[in-house]
C-alpha cells in the first residue's frame, strides 16, 4: 500500500501571547468597574426590582413609546415631503425646505423642546385665518392647545423631519438616473415614477439610518422631561424628587430604555432585510 505523499498538514499553531494579555487586561478592567458599581450601597437592587413594573413606570414607558411612534410617523412623512421639495424644480420650495432643515438641525433639540413648552409666551393665541380676510378658521389660547404631550410631539416631530429629510434625500439621489429614464420611457409620470420606482429602491439606502433614527428618537424622548412631558424619564424624576431614591430609579429607566432599544434593533434587522429584496441575489453582488 502506498502512502499519500501529501498528508494533511499538522503544524504547531503560532501562540498569540498579545491576545491573551489584552483579553486579561480588558477583563480585569471590566471586573473592577462592575465591582465598584455593585459595591455602592445606593444601588439598592431590591428597590430597582420593586419599581421596575410599578404603574407610574409602565405609564411612563407607554408615553415614551407613544411619543416615539407619533414623532417618527410625522417626522418621516414630513421628511419625505421636505426631501421631494428640496429636489424639486421649484426654487421657492427648494429654498423653504433648505431653510427648515437648516433651522431645525442648527439648534439643539433641548432648546426646541423648551421653546415649544413655552410657546404661549411667544404667541399667546394660535389663530388661523383665511388669507387676506379676518375670518378665523381656528382661534384658541396657545396654552389651551399646548397641553399634555402636544408640545413634546411638536418639537420631536419637527426636529425629526429635518433629519429624515436629509436621509430621504440621500436615498433618492442614490437611485440611478437610468431608473427614472426607464420609467419615463414607459409613460410613467414623475409622481408615479417616484412612488413606484425611485422610493422603493431608495428605501434600501434609507432604512438603515432611519432605524438608527427610531432608536435615537426613543432615547431623545427623555429630553421632554424638562417640560414635564409625562414620559418615562419624567415619571422616575417625579418620584425620586420626593423619595431621593435617585440611583435605583435611574437604573429602572435605564433598564427599560435598554430593553426597548434591544427590541428595536431586532426589528431593524428584519426591516433592512425586507428592503434589500432583489439585491442579495447572484452571490451577494450589487445590481449590475
Amino acid at each position: 500500500m502506498t502512502t499519500d505523499p501529501h498528508p494533511p498538514i499538522k503544524a504547531v499553531p503560532v501562540r498569540h501571547y498579545g491576545r491573551w494579555l489584552a483579553a486579561a487586561a480588558v477583563a480585569l478592567l471590566a471586573y473592577q468597574v462592575f465591582a465598584a458599581l455593585l459595591s455602592s450601597p445606593n444601588l439598592e437592587p431590591a428597590t430597582i426590582g420593586d419599581y421596575l413594573f410599578k404603574d407610574f413606570v409602565l405609564e411612563g414607558v407607554q408615553t415614551t413609546l407613544l411619543l416615539t411612534v407619533i414623532a417618527m410617523v410625522l417626522g418621516t412623512a414630513g421628511g419625505i415631503l421636505l426631501a421631494v421639495m428640496r429636489l424639486s424644480a421649484n426654487p421657492v420650495l427648494r429654498f423653504c425646505a433648505a431653510a427648515f432643515v437648516w433651522f431645525f438641525r442648527g439648534t439643539p433639540l433641548l432648546v426646541q423642546i423648551v421653546f415649544f413648552g413655552f410657546l404661549g409666551a411667544l404667541l399667546p393665541r394660535l389663530t388661523i385665518t383665511v388669507p387676506f380676510t379676518d375670518i378665523a378658521v381656528f382661534d384658541q389660547p396657545t396654552n389651551a392647545v399646548m397641553v399634555g404631550i402636544v408640545p413634546a410631539v411638536l418639537a420631536l416631530s419637527l426636529n425629526e423631519m429635518a433629519y429624515a429629510a436629509e436621509i430621504v434625500r440621500g436615498g433618492i439621489m442614490s437611485v440611478d438616473s437610468g431608473q427614472t429614464e426607464a420609467a419615463h420611457a414607459l409613460g410613467m409620470k414623475p409622481g408615479l415614477t417616484m412612488r413606484r420606482i425611485v422610493l422603493p429602491q431608495a428605501m434600501r439606502v434609507i432604512a438603515p439610518p432611519m432605524g438608527n433614527e427610531v432608536i435615537t428618537m426613543l432615547k431623545s424622548t427623555a429630553l421632554v422631561s424638562v417640560i414635564a412631558g409625562r414620559d418615562l424619564m419624567t415619571a422616575v424624576q417625579t418620584v425620586y424628587a420626593q423619595n431621593y431614591k435617585v440611583i435605583p430609579l435611574l437604573a429602572v429607566a435605564a433598564i427599560w430604555y435598554l430593553a426597548l432599544v434591544s427590541v428595536l434593533s431586532v426589528l431593524q434587522w428584519f426591516v433592512e432585510r425586507r428592503f434589500g429584496r432583489g439585491q442579495r441575489a447572484a452571490g451577494g453582488g450589487m445590481f449590475r
Binding site: 420611457a185 414607459l186 409613460g187 410613467m188 413606484r196 432583489g278
Partner: peptide
C-alpha cells in the same frame, strides 16, 4: 411616450421587481 418603447444599453430593469413584475408595472399603473 406610452406608444414608444425604449431599450437601453444598461437595461435599466427595476431591480426591486421580478422579471414579470418589471413587465407588468406600466400596463397596471399606466
Amino acid at each position: 411616450r406610452r406608444d414608444i418603447g425604449m431599450v437601453f444599453q444598461r437595461f435599466n430593469l427595476f431591480p426591486h421587481l421580478t422579471a414579470v413584475g418589471n413587465i407588468m408595472e406600466a400596463p397596471v399603473h399606466v
